[in-house]
Design a binder for these strands. Structure first.
Lengths: 153, 153
DNA sequence: CGACGTGTGTAAACCTGTTGACTCACACTG
DNA sequence: CAGTGTGAGTCAACAGGTTTACACACGTCG
């Protein structure tokens, strides 16, 4: 347990990811990265690689390398509409959408249950309020001059 | 802005890291990973590779590979005390300790200022309380059965 | 003593991401 | 119609992690 909030946040995220990875691996046979790719695509589909890369927080090249395998395994489709330059439109297949739906709901339910656990009875966590506060904080950090470091921009 | 707390947390951590990396790079000429390695070592030095790896949340092998360069550049020392098996004790040099001290203070000050920014006047963030809550949450997740995924254990 | 078991660091192969140079398709300009 | 610019995707080289297997320094126990 650290007394530095920034350390605590890192630790918490690592713990959430580890938990999610364990659940996903055990019940759906996919890893956390795999799920995250599909889940974030679900929020913006159909979209091209560049935008998805931005949403994922990785580079175009990283997305470009993962796409063929995901298409081959039937999670997503990649179409090149005529007359759109080299742009490639990515979408979820039924299988991909189903995974995002069911596994996402499962993880969200788990997480909500944790936040409502008796351990927090004495000092309950107000999730919506916390979410709003943290989003404000994100926006504020992004507005800081030194923060010119988002990948791919 | 996502309405899912877990997404927001990921985004926040990414933003904090990007900010820290920009500051560290600009003012101290080191990257965030570099600083993190030294800062976490500072909290447990002197210690051996296995324990440091655990604290960093990476494997022994990863630490083992980084140590030679850090020693060569004068950030840390690696000693093999007689009679302790193959254990190697890692410690910060003066240079390393100074970086952790000054850069750490700088980042912490920046972060504290952000949390006190006017943007939060309407709904202030109580950092110590939040830290406690999140640490409780971490402990709770770790106690969940599915969470058998901490690296190196 | 000698054989094992255990903890610790290291080496090799691999996976995944980044960077920087490139190709390609299109739009604009002369 | 070139010629040039620009945005999108891809390729090659690299960086930093993980895994698996191993070498080594100790204990312990026969």
């Amino acid at each position: 347990m650290s007394d530095r909030l920034s350390f605590t946040l890192h630790e918490l995220v690592a713990e959430i990811d580890a938990y999610a990875d364990a659940v996903l691996q055990a019940e759906y046979g996919v890893g956390y990265n795999h799920f995250q790719f599909l889940a974030i695509l679900a929020g913006v589909e159909p979209t091209d690689m560049t935008r998805l890369a931005f949403c994922l927080g990785v580079t175009k090249a990283a997305v470009s390398k993962r796409v063929p395998a995901l298409v081959a395994d039937g999670w997503i489709t990649a179409d090149s509409p005529a007359g759109s330059g080299r742009s490639i439109l990515l979408s979820l297949t039924e299988k991909g959408a189903a995974l995002v739906q069911t596994a996402g709901a499962r993880l969200e339910r788990d997480f909500a249950e944790m936040l409502a656990a008796p351990a927090f009875a004495a000092d309950p966590i107000d999730a919506p309020r916390l979410n709003t506060q943290l989003n404000t904080l994100i926006a504020f950090i992004q507005s800081q001059p030194a923060s010119a470091a988002a990948p791919q921009e």
